[in-house]
Amino acid sequence: MPEDWNRALAIVAHPDDLEYGAAAAIARWTAAGREVAYLMVTRGEAGIDTMEPERAARVRQAEQRASAAVVGVEEVEFLDHRDGVVEEGVALRRDLTAAIRRHRPELLITLNHHETWGGVNWNTPDHRAVGRAVLDAAGDAGNRWIFTDLADRGLEPWDGVRWVAVAGSPQPTHAVEVAQEDVDRAVASLAEHRAYIGALSDKEPAEYAREFVTGVMDMLAGQTGGRRAVAFQVYPRG
């Protein structure tokens, strides 16, 4: 996995997406002094069946901020695209391009944009739309002739994105080895999504989170020599 970078921006569709994929790696990176910021395209308002959207948005934003803090991420932003019906297209690309120009990362992180999870379960439209838009916006951010209005707002082109790393991809190319303390922080980070987990499972959030996080890593163990790691599909940019 590339290590010669200092600033990353993680862009995903929903609160909790990073905790289900990349949090242990992010914990390792922030502990090493790297800067990581989060951008959620939605506020997760359609994610809890027993909670009306306006309240769910408030709850899930608070849970996401608490979750990010556990792995050393201080900056968490939310866009206002509608949860469940994120539209892939120019408007989304413009918003992501603006964020990339604002944060000026070398590494972008996102979640699986492929049609399935491991060729078995169908991926959701929001994940697919956002992941693909991240890949597109990585290039858009550096082209001064695309979204020219952004420069008028002080967002000058940024062609410094060197890689896009996709967590949860069924086609991983790289892995970040993590220590037990990184795993523990990732578990605690996921467990902060208490209301969301409570709607999914009867288990205590900490128990649910540990089973999920360690279960994913154990599935990768055969490809990592038995070491715990987080896998990514990495797209280098020329």
Rank of each mutant, 00 (worst) to 15 (best):
R82M: 07
G72Y: 11
V76I: 09
R60E: 06
A57G: 12
V70T: 12
V71A: 01
V70A: 07
F78P: 13
E63C: 10
F78A: 11
G84L: 01
A69M: 03
D80L: 11
R55A: 09
A68P: 05
A57M: 00
R55V: 05
E54N: 10
R65T: 14
V73D: 08
E87P: 01
V76E: 06
V85H: 01
A69L: 10
R82P: 09
R58V: 12
A66W: 04
E75R: 14
Q64D: 07
D83L: 15
D80G: 09
R55F: 05
Q64K: 10
A66Y: 00
L79W: 01
V71L: 00
E63D: 12
A69D: 06
V70G: 06
V85T: 12
F78D: 13
E75W: 05
V70Y: 02
F78L: 15
V59G: 07
A56S: 11
F78E: 11
R65H: 09
E75V: 10
E63P: 03
V85C: 05
A68H: 02
E75F: 02
D83G: 07
A68L: 06
V86C: 03
V59F: 09
G84Q: 06
A57D: 02
A56G: 10
A56K: 03
V59W: 02
A62K: 15
L79H: 00
R55Y: 00
E87C: 03
H81F: 15
Q61P: 02
A56F: 03
R55C: 00
E74D: 14
F78H: 10
G72H: 06
S67L: 02
A69F: 05
A57K: 04
E54C: 03
V85F: 00
V59E: 12
D83N: 14
V70C: 03
V73Y: 10
R58W: 06
V76G: 01
S67N: 06
A68I: 03
V73S: 06
D83F: 14
H81I: 04
R60C: 09
R55K: 12
Q64H: 04
V73G: 09
A57P: 07
V59D: 04
H81Q: 15
G84K: 04
A69V: 08
A69K: 15
H81N: 08
A56Q: 09
H81W: 06
R82F: 05
V70D: 08
R82T: 13
F78Q: 10
R65Y: 08
E63Q: 11
S67K: 13
E74Y: 04
Q64I: 01
V73Q: 06
V59M: 07
V71N: 00
R55H: 08
Q61T: 14
V86R: 00
V76L: 08
E88S: 12
Q64E: 15
R65M: 13
A57C: 02
Q64C: 08
R55T: 14
E74T: 10
A56E: 04
E77C: 13
E77T: 12
A56V: 11
A56N: 03
V71G: 04
V85K: 02
A66E: 12
G84A: 05
V71M: 11
R82I: 14
G72D: 07
V86P: 07
A66P: 07
A66I: 05
V85R: 05
